[in-house]
């Protein structure tokens, strides 16, 4: 077989490829496409791209918080108790709602 770089073979393949019989768009095809487009309704702004803009920032924040937690330790029950004990007004406020419930 001749190598593919052979200009004659290459020309013949290109000519055959470009000489392929192709379909023509008809009026019914156009109507069908427009009906489909209408059935999709008006366009809505795609928020996906907008949301993805924050991905890098969110990942960076997660890394920073993870590093902070690794350094200081994660004990939410102590933090909550400390907050309530140091904030007596807040505690009274919360207990008011606890009584209502």
């Amino acid at each position: 077989m001749k190598p593919l770089d052979d200009a004659k073979l290459k020309d013949a393949l290109i000519a055959a490829y470009h000489g392929k019989k192709t379909a023509e768009p008809g009026i019914y095809w156009e109507i069908k496409v427009m009906n489909h487009i209408r059935s999709l309704g008006p366009l809505q702004y795609d928020m996906t791209g907008f949301v993805w803009r924050f991905a890098a920032g969110a990942c960076f924040l997660v890394l920073i918080l993870s590093a902070y937690v690794m350094q200081t330790g994660f004990h939410p029950e102590y933090e909550m108790t400390e907050l309530l004990l140091n904030d007596s007004e807040g505690l009274a406020f919360l207990s008011y709602f606890a009584n209502i419930i």
Partner: peptide
């Protein structure tokens, strides 16, 4: 983009031959 779906017909008419040529091959 503002919601006029029928305006798409202009683009369809103008570019249908162009797209058929690309796809047809």
């Amino acid at each position: 983009i503002d919601g006029d779906v029928n305006a798409f017909e202009h683009l369809l008419k103008k570019y249908k031959q162009y797209v058929f040529k690309i796809v047809g091959r």
